[in-house]
Design a protein around this nucleic acid. Sequence first.
DNA 1: ACTTGCACCTCACGCACCGTGAGGAGCCAC
DNA 2: GTGGCTCCTCACGGTGCGTGAGGTGCAAGT
Lengths: 252, 252
Amino acid sequence: MDHPIGEVAAFAGVTVRALHHYEEIGLLRPSRRTPAGHRRYTDGDLARLQQIRFYQELGFRLDEVAALLDDPETDPTEHLRRQHALLLGRAARLEAMAAAVERTLEAHRMGVNLTPEERFEVFGERDPEQYATEADRRWGDGPAYREARRRTARYTKDDWRRITGEQRQVGARFAELLRSGAAATCREAMDLAEEHRRQVCRYFYDCDHTVHRGLADLYESDPRFTEGYGPAPELGRYVGAAIRANADRHEG
Amino acid sequence: MDHPIGEVAAFAGVTVRALHHYEEIGLLRPSRRTPAGHRRYTDGDLARLQQIRFYQELGFRLDEVAALLDDPETDPTEHLRRQHALLLGRAARLEAMAAAVERTLEAHRMGVNLTPEERFEVFGERDPEQYATEADRRWGDGPAYREARRRTARYTKDDWRRITGEQRQVGARFAELLRSGAAATCREAMDLAEEHRRQVCRYFYDCDHTVHRGLADLYESDPRFTEGYGPAPELGRYVGAAIRANADRHEG
DNA sequence: ACTTGCACCTCACGCACCGTGAGGAGCCAC
DNA sequence: GTGGCTCCTCACGGTGCGTGAGGTGCAAGT
């Protein structure tokens, strides 16, 4: 009912050394040892290893993986659902990159020279926030968060003024819409949500519609994010609803 | 007409430190320096950086990337085509992993316990065959052909994209090996051949080593099957030799 | 003329994730 | 008893940067 280390390594596509390492850092401890000291992995251990492999493939560091898996508030199916979403997101990103390569090829064929922005737009991506501490609590500090921090770290003061200015403008337009009595599900509100999403993409991380839904929760639950434009909690809910409607529209 | 390092870093989504590192290891040297010693990157440097980023995203190490880019026999468009194939392959792999997560979820819901093989099959590897129509001509409508047609008939457009992406990846890896000077009878080449065989099994029909030998002939005689990855006829012979060596190994 | 302030420079140490032996033991087959 | 395979435990090495520390170049403000 349990397996020796070589077999496990072969199954999982990792080396024996890696399994040793996982034990050293407390990430995966085999449930049993033989009298001779040989490691034996149970099916439960294998299930954990599977989770480890998925998270790792997604770019999490091993200490992050350990934190995720050892969080008592997360049940197994939640891990799987999260991994599913992240995997599809990454796949989509790679396809976008492939498309970018195609465009580059095309430009090359035409003898056109690309602008730097065009060259690297697909590398823009994934994930966190100026709400660094919020993002932290919500997503731990996954690869997306690190990427965002890396990017934001390079922004100058002028960049920040420009970026927050743009964001405040979107916020103001949301407040405007809300005051006008337009539904959060109307086209204008959804377009505004889409604009917001693209801003996040441009300045912070690769924010697809799924991730954007997560931000919607954030806006609704924390009035800090919309304060200053209007009736805070109500505007938060309004923006959240618009983001969700927009996501529905694009995913439908 | 050239750019300071911070700007380049922002464009490309890398840190300034990374660019310093690339220069240290001779991977990317800015074409110019200002009198004050500040690096200046030309558009040509940016083009190279773009290539670096793509290859890196695909999992190549920096010294490998340098070797690839500095190979005088490879022209720019060949890099792009190769990257395109590899990106699609990786995207396909991630989608397969997402599907595996779905299956795991489903099994979980049913209360079923997965076998280790099931748990990790997606981590093993990749790749198959599109030569359905060729198979057609060769085997007329024997049982193998009928099975292939039965299975391929159910594939959606998405399935096809995924499958051909995986295949192209194996092709690219063969080309890589050939370029590296490895013998077609080396272990890596045979492993790759075996991987290829399993793809055929998974996506088309039961392809044992004998049948695989038949495919080897096909690849050698028709350069269409390996074009786009490298010197077509040579690569075809190389793949054929690897398949035969692999068959020998398994049948021996 | 002076001082911020930012972008840039050059060391140089540190860290994550293992790879890669070295040296030895358990276990099976002949 | 002697290969031959798998397993064990150190322990050093390597890649791809992160992260200061300490200093320079230059433009704008006072």
